[in-house]
């Protein structure tokens, strides 16, 4: 069973002469419970795919399915109970005037939960924040703590699928490790399906089982993480990307 199916997806911005094709003819499928990576450089369209799935970008064509059900132009509340997203920059994804309590409380109320108080405490515990953080405002939190709140918000409706848009690229490496471990644990505990977007092949290698390499809006190659680690790639672009990711080698 596929959690996500994408076929011939095209996404563009603007109209007429200003039309900018961000994603061209992309197809991939993610199995339930799998962790799938989308890798590419900036502007390759990887984040745009996530935004198209969640309905944040209205201009797309092709076919997108969640758990076998095709997506239309609008998204239902039921959709948001199934699919949630964690954004790249935790400094931009939390409302500066809303406390942690407001952020989580609002998400829970929107999804029709009654026992909001208990659930907020549960969510905070799940993402490794104590109850002490409940009434803090974003400016009183560090980057890692903010990202934990953002993850808690995404978990609030108890989704099956989590879309992760570079969730650690704005964080220090030691904090990145904490967040990646947290995401690994959450997936194991809740049986989540992940789609993770990143420019960092090592992060994708750590988090995912399969990945697709993107360049200029197209998927160049799909491969397993084992293949990636072994540098078994047929595409020159993937090879080049892998080589530069392995680190800088000095000219002698």
């Amino acid at each position: 069973m596929n959690a996500i199916g994408v076929e011939n997806l095209n996404v563009w911005f603007g109209k007429g002469r200003d039309r900018n094709q961000a994603v061209s003819d992309v197809s991939f499928a993610v199995r339930t419970g799998e962790s799938f990576g989308l890798v590419g450089e900036s502007g390759s369209g990887k984040s745009t795919i996530l935004r198209a799935i969640t309905g944040l970008v209205p201009s797309w064509s092709g076919r997108m399915e969640i758990a076998g059900i095709a997506l239309g132009k609008a998204r239902s509340r039921q959709f948001y109970k199934t699919v949630q997203m964690v954004f790249q920059d935790p400094y931009a994804s939390l409302h500066p005037r809303h406390s942690v309590d407001q952020v989580l409380g609002e998400a829970l109320k929107l999804h029709g939960f009654r026992d909001v108080d208990q659930r907020i405490e549960r969510l905070l515990k799940d993402v490794g924040l104590g109850p002490a953080f409940r009434f803090r405002y974003p400016h009183q939190l560090s980057g890692g703590q903010r990202q934990r709140v953002a993850i808690a918000r995404a978990l609030a409706p108890e989704p099956d699928i989590l879309l992760l848009d570079e969730p650690t690229s704005a964080l220090d490496v030691s904090v990145q490790a904490e967040i990646l471990n947290l995401l690994t644990d959450l997936r194991a505990e809740n049986g989540l399906t992940y789609v993770m977007v990143s420019h960092d092949l090592a992060v994708i290698g750590h988090m995912c089982e399969r990945l697709a390499v993107m360049q200029a809006g197209r998927i160049v190659e799909e491969m397993t993480v084992e293949d990636m680690r072994a540098l078994r790639s047929t595409e020159p672009y993937t090879k080049q990307l892998l080589e530069s990711s392995l680190g800088y080698t000095r000219e002698t």
């Binding site: 935004r51 944040l56 920059d89 994804s93």
Partner: peptide, 11 residues
């Protein structure tokens, strides 16, 4: 992003 995030909660 925080507006996008709350839209994803169905607001």
């Amino acid at each position: 992003d925080y507006i996008a995030a709350v839209r994803l909660q169905g607001a």
